[in-house]
C-alpha cells in the first residue's frame, strides 16, 4: 500500500488550540483515537465528512487542515 500524498496539519492545529489531546479531537469528530493517529500520521485518508468535521473543530477551512500537492506533468 503506497502512502497517501495527502498531508495534514492536524498536529500543528492541535497544539495551536490549547494542546488539544488526540483523544479529545477523536471524540469531537466521532472516530477512535487510533484512527485519528493514523490520519495524523498520513496512514489513512479520512472520508470527506470526517475531514470537514476536523476542520470545523479548529474553525479553519479544509485546505488549512489537509493539503494535496500539485501534479507535475511528465
Amino acid at each position: 500500500m503506497k502512502p497517501t500524498k495527502v498531508t495534514n496539519s492536524i498536529r500543528a492545529l492541535r497544539f495551536a488550540h490549547g494542546e488539544m489531546k488526540q483523544a479529545d479531537l477523536a471524540k469531537a469528530v466521532g472516530v477512535t483515537r487510533q484512527t485519528l493517529i493514523a490520519i495524523e500520521q498520513g496512514k489513512y485518508s479520512p472520508s470527506l465528512e470526517v475531514a470537514f468535521k476536523i476542520a470545523r473543530v479548529f474553525h479553519v477551512s479544509l485546505e488549512e487542515v489537509f493539503q494535496y500537492p500539485e501534479e507535475e506533468d511528465a
Partner: peptide, 10 residues
Amino acid sequence: NDGLQSDERD
C-alpha cells in the same frame, strides 16, 4: 472505558 470502539476506518 475507551469510548468508541470502531469507526469508518475499521
